[in-house]
Nucleic acid binder design. Structure first.
Lengths: 203, 203
DNA sequence: TGTACATCAGTGAACGCGCGTTCACTGATGTAC
DNA sequence: TGTACATCAGTGAACGCGCGTTCACTGATGTAC
């Protein structure tokens, strides 16, 4: 047993539960793991759950937000370490690879449960769209050479295409077409997007 | 009560159960409706279910196949009624519209449960990839002016982008960004794809 | 310093509910004679 | 033609199980005196 009453101890435990939930919801689906198992993975028993969250639904909504934040910050890191065009290519290649496909629990929130959020409540959709807005904003920085509305359009499109390809690649994992999907989408996105065309014109 | 023992009566009932399952699974998720309610929607009681399917899992796999076939034949109809470029635009516009977004039960199988199939068994993934292959084949016909492998790549990419956009639009339904997603993806797909570029070159 | 008490993170038994599955039964029909 | 029987699509009660949720309790710690 660790020391109790330490400053922020309960917040740390809460964050741990959320981290476990984010991972398992992404890997097994939002209904793919129950509270008892979640709490066990967090090193606790199920009874304590309700001193952290008012209901399972509340946890689910918070886990959605946490999971989407994880993707956003990952993209931000890749973004800031490279110039615009290379940064976007780095994001696309890190996204559309077999390692990401086979690691749903540690990967992007969108292919893992965007469709589940589509069946969620109004509050779920508000969380989704505000977190998606942050993702769009990060990607949009890579289209700063375009007019603002065109850059936003390209960013939205790139995110849609990436998450769609990953979802289809996962659904066909183990079949030859799965790698084709990753390859095709990475190829078209990196060779066909305006950011790359712009590069070519400069060269 | 209808007449019993009529030729093919049981097959018709089976098809009706599958049609109901396809619609409700797409609308509410694969776990969003139970056997009792499914059978009630098909005009029966739950006890009879097991004279049609060996288990719920078997029904789910068959419903996946039925749902994907529905999309394929819808695309085929749009494809054959128009020349290549216009046919593809018709498919894209019919896909990326608010009517489709708000009608998951009657819409495409991919945004409805591709992610669920990603968590399915090996047999589920085999069904998925063989049905996806048919979809690719229909879309690929619209890229017949390209080398075969490039046409296939574009077809795979277009399908990924369409289903990704629809999934994100549904998850943000009710927020302004939802319509933006549909518009952005339809716009980029129809103006940026090689089929359209080819058209322009000819003109 | 030592003792009694309050605090509170965490425990685990218990409950109700929904769901997948089983199974003995029903009742309308076609068929044999 | 009429009667007895076989067939079989469909019924609904019952069971077991897992899961979300509740709640009385535990036990380690900090604090008051």
């Amino acid at each position: 047993m660790e020391v109790r009453y330490s400053k922020g101890h309960k917040d740390q435990t809460r964050d741990r539960i959320l981290a476990v939930a984010s991972t398992y919801f992404k890997r097994n689906g939002v209904n793919g793991i129950g509270i008892a198992n979640l709490m066990r993975e967090a090193g606790l028993t199920h009874g304590g759950f309700y001193s952290y969250f008012r209901s399972r639904d509340k946890l689910v909504n918070e886990a959605y937000a946490v999971a989407m934040d994880q993707t956003t910050s990952k993209w931000k890191k890749l973004s800031t370490s490279l110039p615009a065009a290379e940064g976007l290519e780095a994001i696309i290649k890190a996204y559309l690879c077999e390692k990401h496909r086979d690691n749903a629990g540690g990967g992007c929130a969108l292919p893992a449960f965007a469709d589940e959020m589509g069946r969620g409540s109004r509050s779920t959709k508000k969380i989704f769209s505000s977190k998606l807005e942050e993702m769009i904003s990060v990607i949009k920085n890579h289209f700063s050479h375009l007019p603002a509305d065109e850059g936003r359009r390209q960013a939205i499109f790139a995110i849609s295409a990436m998450m769609g390809a990953m979802t289809l690649a996962r659904a066909s994992a183990g079949e030859a077409v799965s790698e084709e999907i990753l390859e095709a989408s990475a190829n078209v996105l990196t060779s066909g997007l305006p950011v790359r065309s712009a590069k070519r014109e400069v060269t």
